[in-house]
Structures are given as structure tokens and as C-alpha cells.
Amino acid sequence: MDKNAIEVDRIFKTYADGTAAVNDVSFRIPEGTCFGFLGPNGAGKTTLMKMLYGMVRRDRRDETRVSVFGFDPVCDELAIKHLAGVVPQDNNLDAEMNVSANLFIYSKFYGLPAKEARPRIAELLDFMELKEKSKAKVNDLSGGMKRRLVIARALLNRPRLLILDEPTTGLDPQVRQVIWDKVRSLKKEGATVLLTTHYMEEAYQIADAIIIMDKGTRVIEGAPRELLAKGIESWVMEVLDPETMSMSGEAFSEGSLGPGVRREDGDSRAQFFSDHPEALRVLASRLPSGVTHVRPTNLEDLFLRATGRQLNDIQ
């Protein structure tokens, strides 16, 4: 754990249309760990990933330094891509070819001889639970199967670094669990995993450390459990129908909530945060039963607190 797979110092990206997609972000990823980038759409997560393997050119600045296993993507893009397996946000499979042909053709891009490629493909189809589908056309696969095929494709060259750009967006819960299992077992084998997601659950399940990004900058960074412990109160009470609060005749304004209780209002719900569930239960008892819900806070609460509740332009 003492060596870093990736070191990024002060990276910036401004697109041709003037959008500042990534604005002064730095991070270090120790080898063999899983690092998650969280943030709403447009936060700069994908741009950041793509800059690491040369699909997006970072701004030229003297203070920027990027190292992926000692290589800089500006001059050693191919060496990085040879060591990394990339699962892009869009599946971009070869729709004209079947499942195993997709993998075989891709193995040629890594220069794998057929003798090595064929057993590796069989192994990966087995690992990603696609064995029965090896002769199926790509367009006949379900969304979850296509995603697993893209992951298998990224694993062809036994990558030391796996880049997963929203690996489970739009997939059903069973498939997500399977994919998380696979990522965990790859990590056990020593791979470094880089993940972008907007599922808090996903980051909690597989990431050792996360960065929450918003508008191209880092908002917070740390281990998911520590961030939860430090970044937000442990409990929340949600009032799903805030009108009942005024109808109850009780006071719910700041100052009358009791010590350590914080109120936050959304469009159609009010939330009360506290480290003391008892304090929240007292508040709940002032309201009719059924309109309140007390639960432990999760990364989603932290995420919303860190990135705000308003939708941005591209969401």
C-alpha cells in the first residue's frame, strides 16, 4: 500500500467552448485500492478519467503533474492504455460482431496472440457469467449483459488499473451486486480500481476512498465511513409532508428543535439532522405518526449536503 498507482497534481481542463470541466484537482491513489469519484452529472468525473488515458487532453500548465504508473498520458498514452482496462460510460461495442468476436478483435488491439487470447476469452466469459452468450449478437444482449461484456473486454490484458466510468448506471440491483462482487475480487488480486458513480451505495460498497466533486472541483475526500462519521450527523428524520408541521401547531423553527438538531428544507420534504436519535424521536412525537421517518444518514445525504440540492444546467 506504500506505492501510488496514480499521482495527479493540480490538473485543469477547459473545453474549446470555454467550459471549465476540471478545475485544480489533485489526488493520489495507492496501488491495489479502489478510488471513487462521486458527483452529479457535469461535475467533471468523466473528463478526469479520460485525461488519465489520453482521451481528453488536459490544459497545458506548468504546475500540472500527472503520473499513471510513472507514465504521463501526454507522452506515454499507449503505455498507460496497455496497463489499464477502460470501461467507458457508453458501451461502444462492435454491434456487427457477436460476443466472442468482440473480445477476440479487441484482444488484437493489445497484440495478444490467438493462442493466449482464446483461453483468456473463455475464462472471462465464465468470470462475467456470459458463457452461454458467447455466440449471441451484441444487439440481442440485455443492458446488464452488454455492461458485463464491456468489463470483460477491459480485463483482456490483465490490467493493473481498471477504470470504470459509471459501471452500473441504469442496471437492475441484481446485476449491480454481481458487478460489485467482480470488482471486489479483482481488487483482491491486486488491481487498482478507479470508479466514477453517482450511486452513493456503489461507492460505499467498493471504494476505499472517495472524492466528491462538484462543478469541476473537489468538495471532500476521504474513506466513505470516515466521511460519514465526520461530514454529517448520524441520524436524520424526514418529514414527507411538511404541511403537517404547521398544522400541528408545534414549533419546528431553528432554536426550538433542541440542542444539536439541524433543519434543512427540500422541495417537498423537511429534514432534521442530529447525532442523537432520541432528540429526533421527541420531534417526531409532536407530529402524527406516519408522516415522519427516522433513519441513519447515508452517503447520499452527505453528497447532497456537499453538492447542493439545485439541479445544474446539464442534469
Binding site: Y53, M55, E77, L78, A79, K81, H82, V86, P88, D90, N92, L93, D94, A95, Y106, F109, Y110, G111, R153, A154
Partner: peptide, 14 residues
Amino acid sequence: FDKIYDGMLAAPLS
């Protein structure tokens, strides 16, 4: 439409 090059450029190809 098919985004074939995006897939290819994720492999060690320029």
C-alpha cells in the same frame, strides 16, 4: 453513431 473509435481508443491505439 456506433462510437467504434471510442472503444478502440480505450485500447493501446492512437
